[in-house]
Design a protein around this nucleic acid. Structure first.
Lengths: 337, 337
DNA sequence: CTGAAAGCGCTTACAG
DNA sequence: CTGAAAGCGCTTACAG
């Protein structure tokens, strides 16, 4: 009727409680007979070791805390799903925390997380105070940033090559013969937003071109719509827009369509992420791919590494993305990947 | 350097370990002086009660296990986010498990979940064997199904009014003057898929109309695309399609567009869910809204109720959705909500 | 209100 | 290989 304990299994199997524990502890030794007796009794009773009790004595909970901010941007559910699968495969599970995207909110959540004795913390697109980073370090809890870099806190971070991606986008637009190129940037409070913009501006600068407009879209759909409307209202509107992520780029495309403009003909749009929706017919968005799979794998690998080898120094890992050409932006003459 | 315990706080504050515990136990009594001393010492040391240890003695982990199958359908990330927020507000957290959508896979995951001593389990769009439901009941762990009903297992289930929704869709299409109405159904292995289809067929039948085609789209984008292509290839293709959920409806709309057909003019499409994307310009999908917020709130409320009052009998709760009219389907003459 | 003590369900030296 | 025992960090009667 209630929770079954190792003691009950021991009694039924006619062995000691320690024997039961050993049978369920990978790497512990028990004779074949003991194993058989214990497994039989356990099956009959429906016994499974209490993970919490195990966690308390071993100091390892096999729980990874994951803090996410935006679940409306398709990139994150995807990352979450893969993160969860990869971690599950290693015997870990994810305790999920949704956070407001303020440093304060995250700090509060981090406290909660530490109270749960998580073995590690993954911060997806969320920033942290250096204070909190320090506390986590002192508590011996590895923290890795996913899709966000932060120099000040000395944490391991996994991102795509955002500066390079920004450059790629600008070069593609330049090669397409565009001269009035605007940028609706990713949130400038985030490293991804800043880096993509920096790469974009750098490539433009190298070509001796000034951006025709530069605004912060805050990774927000409504703001992106408003920005686009404003751009279109200008006397000579841009002939191309590089948008800080796909989520905003879809808003830009919807706004263009509503204005009777055809993306890829009247005006070119390039996004960032390559979420599945970017490939769907309604948008066919040319974009810079963030390799989610490799980002996730790297995140899991480094997390596990840090759990196993606490002395591992923090690293900033960048994964190369590439341009995915579809029809939302003019394709340069003789363009080959 | 390492984890701070209540004993360390006690020593620093000059009180007993029990006193420290009481200060951090809501409802326990301690004098103002004790509270002040303990809080001061705790703050200096950065102490937070170990949730796992507390869970072990109290038998309450304040963890809710959530099993999800599809994160590519925008409906679920949304539900997840709200579920997480609502639960966090009540001091609970979500341990997330992604599951293959086979009963076997889910059963395995359920075992894992019980080992974590979760206080409750929410199954989102996932089925469970009656065997497992039985085991959970015996272990005293409340289980609630979200967006899926299952008569056989006697579990509490929260869904939208799917039959009624199916009827609504059919009636709207009928009122629009369509006569060759096809249905790309939601997965017939799920209650939502079956109920929506049943409601749809019932309304058609009441009007003396036979469906022009009936196929199982399995809630899968690629299958939905293939089905649509097949429907279009027929000599006299349907003039309307009711699709089992929005995720598949987007695929249908993309396929129509690729075939040069305009939804809402050449052919009408109605979806199910009303995910945010349905409102975006590119799709403007007429659809039956599943009220996520209310479904989530109800799920959380009943879960908490079952945790508090274990004797609570299982209930099947249906939340009414309504038709959201956009432009993907012809609007009947003089139509008013 | 407060402290000493038992106990939650495990793992892990320690002897044998 | 196996059992008795200590201990992980807490909460909660039990006395005082």
């Amino acid at each position: 009727m209630d929770k079954v304990t190792s003691l009950q299994v021991a009694q039924r199997a006619g062995v000691s409680q320690s024997a039961v524990s050993r049978v369920f502890t990978p790497g512990a030794s028990a004779s074949a007979k003991t194993i058989a007796k214990v497994r039989k009794a356990a099956a009959e009773l429906g016994y499974h070791p209490n993970v919490l009790a195990r966690a308390m004595v071993s100091g390892k909970s096999r729980i990874i805390g994951l803090v996410v901010a935006y679940l409306d941007n398709q990139f994150y559910p995807l990352a979450l799903e893969r993160l969860s699968n990869a971690l599950q495969a290693q015997g870990y599970h994810i305790l999920i925390f949704t956070a407001p995207n303020s440093t304060d909110g995250v700090d509060e959540v981090m406290n909660d997380l530490m109270a749960y004795q998580v073995d590690g913390i993954i911060l997806a697109s969320v920033s942290i105070s250096s204070d909190l980073a320090e506390r986590a370090r002192n508590a011996g809890i590895p923290v890795v940033l996913f899709n966000r870099a932060q120099d000040d806190v000395g944490l391991t971070a996994v991102t795509s090559a955002n500066r390079k991606g920004g450059r790629l986008a600008a070069e593609f637009l330049l090669a397409g013969g565009h001269s009035r190129i605007a940028h609706i940037a990713g949130w400038q409070g985030s490293s991804t937003g800043r880096d993509r913009q920096a790469g974009f501006l750098q490539a433009l600068d190298a070509a001796g071109v000034a951006p025709s407009a530069l605004v912060d879209g805050m990774y927000n759909r409504d703001i992106a719509i408003a920005c686009t409307q404003e751009l279109l209202a200008a006397a000579r509107h841009p002939d191309a827009i590089f948008v800080g992520n796909d989520h905003m780029a879809f808003a830009v495309l919807d706004t263009l369509r509503a204005a009777g403009l055809v993306a890829g003909q009247d005006i070119s749009v390039v996004g960032y992420d390559d979420v599945p929706l970017a490939a769907w017919g309604a948008y066919a968005l040319t974009t810079i791919r963030q390799p989610v799979n490799r980002m996730v794998d790297t995140t899991v690998t480094t997390m596990l590494e840090q759990i196993t080898t606490p002395a591992t120094p923090p690293r900033q890992i960048e994964i190369d993305g590439r341009l995915i050409v579809r029809s939302s932006a003019r394709i340069p003459q003789g363009w080959t990947q």
